[in-house]
Design a protein around this nucleic acid. Structure first.
Length: 432
RNA sequence: GCGAGCGUGGCCAAGUGGUUAAGGCAGUGGAUUGUGAUUCCACCAUUCGCGGGUUCGAGUCCCGUCGUUCGCCCCA
């Protein structure tokens, strides 16, 4: 087979699916703008160093999943296709000195990210995220705002039975003390841990907490809890987040074993999961990252954000089976030289006055054209044959009822506002 | 990186070693030279992802390879 195909783990989003993506984008944008978030569009490539420093050299994402390559310059700079979006946004924040514009920046971005992994359900090499960040506030209300936006978006899309898991991973010193406690608890069980976890005991012990290996899970059950090691600041912050979530009626469960895989998280960490996604259950993940901006060379600035995985979201929406019908006002049928010529003008004129019109280009028998009209999803059909073309008339046929009237083309144009007023409620009926 | 399943026309598929590869949907042309969810007819895979092997004979068995799906790892 010599035809060129899409790269493994990438795929075309075809016209039939794009409707869903647009729906997600429209709802997300509306909700974000209501909360005064502004869109930002950073590049998809960055210097490799940004991710190495920002996400952490030891993380799986940086150590084995990045698309990294030298560019064509003499210097052979090392570039990387972004494996996540936050680091690039923070870079943009620092470089453009957005911190000078005001104390808090609320930003959002939708776009692709890239990781070299084995594809499976809900996981691709090129995938898309909706990324939302609040940079410049240490207040727990910022955490709550961000979480509320995430749940609002998912709810507005009609998704139910999602779980919100919440945890606090504390600050630097808290986590250091906990880490030591965890290691000393786990070391006696060293030989019973699964190989991956044994490996992490020295490198990244916190990640052992959410291992799926059954024996490891048993051992971890009675391990010391991160929550017992939170300092008073961290504890107060976490309490306030919980209280306010409750006040907003957002239900959640505290999961002391929720640990996120990127090094930059502090304090609040959260995940929204679904049971309908197979192994990749997380639709939304996020948390606070108070140290990242400074770590990347900016002023000491706290921040919190999340990312929603759009492919995973789309999978859930498909399960809801609510496919909006194609939005088309008129299907224009024409047959015969003069009629076909006129139909182009008719279509153009109607489009310019606000109608959506699909023009049948085949010139085939009326029967065939009506069949296509039927399938197009149009509300009404306009018919232009030789007789109409000669006398400046057009037939208007309502496809649902079969009712048909004849009118002059001039009358048709004059009636456009009335027709649209009739057609759009019909379309709305079809959706609900 | 590891493990398992699957790859037959645009789509869904039957076919498990024996002459010309079912069927359905969609598409095209016609019955109906101007009226659509009905009907009828015709056309639509020199070939079963690709390469090699076993065999008198392979879509069917074996090996490799690519793709895909699900899982591990990890994450959105």
């Amino acid at each position: 087979m010599s035809t060129i195909q899409a790269i493994k783990g990438t795929r075309d989003i075809l016209p039939g699916e794009v409707i869903r993506w647009q729906q997600v984008e429209a709802i997300a944008k509306a909700i974000l703008e209501r909360a005064a978030y502004r869109e930002i569009r950073p590049p998809v490539m960055e210097f490799t160093e940004l991710f190495a420093r920002g996400i952490g050299e030891a993380t799986d994402v940086v150590s084995k999943e990045m698309y990294t390559f030298p560019d064509q310059s003499k210097k052979q700079r090392s570039l990387t296709l972004r494996p996540e979006i936050t680091a690039g946004l923070v870079r943009a924040f620092i470089q453009n000195k957005l911190f000078a514009e005001g104390s808090v920046q609320r930003l959002w971005h939708i776009g692709p990210a890239f990781r070299y992994e084995q594809p499976q359900q809900g996981r691709q090499r090129q995938f898309h995220q909706l990324d939302v960040e609040v940079i410049g506030s240490r207040n727990p209300r910022a955490d709550v705002e961000v979480i509320a936006i995430a749940t609002d978006i998912l709810q507005a899309l009609g998704l139910k039975s999602l779980r919100l898991d919440l945890n606090s991973v504390g600050q630097g010193e808290d986590r250091q003390r906990y880490r030591e406690a965890l290691v000393s608890y786990l070391t006696p069980y060293q030989d019973e841990l699964d190989p991956d976890s044994r490996d992490r005991l020295t490198r990244n012990p916190l990640r052992i907490l959410d291992s799926k290996a059954p024996r490891t899970q048993e051992i971890v059950q009675s391990a010391p809890s991160l929550l017992d090691y939170l300092g008073s600041d961290a504890q107060r912050h976490f309490d306030q987040v919980q209280q306010q979530l409750t006040a907003l009626g957002i239900s959640f469960q505290v999961n002391p074993r929720l640990v996120r895989g990127l090094d930059y998280y502090t304090h609040t960490a959260f995940e929204i999961q679904s049971d309908d996604l197979g192994a990749q259950a997380t639709v939304c993940g996020g948390g606070r990252y108070d140290g990242l901006v400074a770590q990347l060379g900016g002023p000491d600035t706290p921040a919190i954000g999340f990312a929603i995985g759009l492919e995973r979201l789309i999978i859930l929406l498909e399960q809801l089976q609510r496919q909006p019908p194609p939005a088309l006002d008129f299907y224009l049928v024409a047959r015969g030289g003069k009629a076909e010529a006129q139909s182009t003008v008719l279509a153009q004129t109607l489009r310019q006055s606000g109608c959506s019109v699909e023009l049948d280009l085949s010139g085939s028998a009326f029967g065939k054209q009506f069949k296509r009209a039927d399938r197009s999803g149009a509300v009404a059909c306009l018919i232009l044959g030789e007789a109409e073309a000669e006398s400046g008339l057009v037939q208007l046929k309502w496809l649902a009822s079969g009712e048909q009237t004849e009118l002059s083309q001039a009358e048709l144009y004059a009636q456009v506002p009335d027709l649209l007023a009739t057609i759009h409620p019909l379309r709305a009926d079809a959706i609900s």
